[in-house]
Design a protein around this nucleic acid. Structure first.
Length: 223
DNA sequence: CTGAGGATAGTCT
DNA sequence: GACTATCCTCAGA
């Protein structure tokens, strides 16, 4: 296992966002270990980006973005959380939002944290929903939705603001390890999801055709 | 102290 | 595709 070093993060967030695709987000806690392949990211720039949290200066909420690269920036949104990796040197407040992973390990733990039962397909999902043995009342979802979307990802991996500022490069609690690089032809870009300003910038990066990517059908842009 | 709004997700049409 | 529950943070009074 190769943990991505600080140098990896100490670069332009557009480069980091692109190269994070294919790498493995790993979460280790008392309950066990979770691992997922990163398939969708977004870059938020330190300058000229009105959608970036740092755009209006430093506050307590976004302070982590102004700190060292390779740290975890967690912030609350709509009663949920989103997970970012801080990029560029201290004082240059940029970050990469991780929007979705393809689950690799820790399926049971992710399901438990999310309070759902993940099914391989819609047919199995229908079957589970009607199964009397499902006494806990957990919703059944498709597997591709287990950690798709930043808030679902945080819930599945047990990430909340207590991990804001955590060092992603020391190999404890949560880190990103090298998995594989995505071939150029499998890489796609689009405008970022859910941002109301700077919507023209193609700062979202995802693995083309990957079923774990959110809203993949909307954009088919190519880099 | 109060109000507004946000890098969402789930549900329903 | 539209609607909205939900809650934390910040700005303004």
């Amino acid at each position: 296992m190769t943990i991505l070093p600080v140098d990896f993060y100490d670069r332009d967030p557009r480069l980091v966002a692109r190269e994070l695709l294919g790498q493995h987000l790993v979460r280790r806690g008392r309950e066990g270990i979770c691992r997922g392949r990163i398939v969708e990211t977004e870059a938020y720039l330190a300058t000229g980006d009105s959608a970036c949290h740092s755009h209006r200066g430093q506050t307590r909420k976004n302070a982590t973005m102004f700190g060292r690269p390779g740290r975890l920036y967690v912030y609350p949104i709509h009663a949920r959380y989103c997970l970012n990796a801080v990029t560029e040197p201290r004082g240059v407040a940029s970050a990469v939002l991780i929007r979705a992973v393809e689950p690799l390990d820790g399926f049971a733990l992710m399901q438990q944290r999310r309070g759902v039962i993940a099914c391989a397909n819609v047919i199995e999902r229908f079957s589970v929903a009607n199964n009397r043995l499902n006494q806990v009342g957990a919703r059944s979802i498709e597997l591709r939705h287990l950690a798709r979307g930043p808030a679902r990802l945080c819930e599945a991996f047990g990430v909340d603001r207590r991990l804001d500022g955590w060092n992603l490069t020391i190999g404890a609690r949560i880190w990103i390890a090298f998995g594989s690089n995505v071939a150029h032809e499998d890489l796609a870009t689009s405008p970022r999801i859910g941002v109301t300003s700077a919507h023209d910038l193609p700062l979202r990066f995802f693995v083309r055709g990957n079923g774990y990517v959110s809203r993949s059908s909307i954009y088919l842009a190519r880099t």
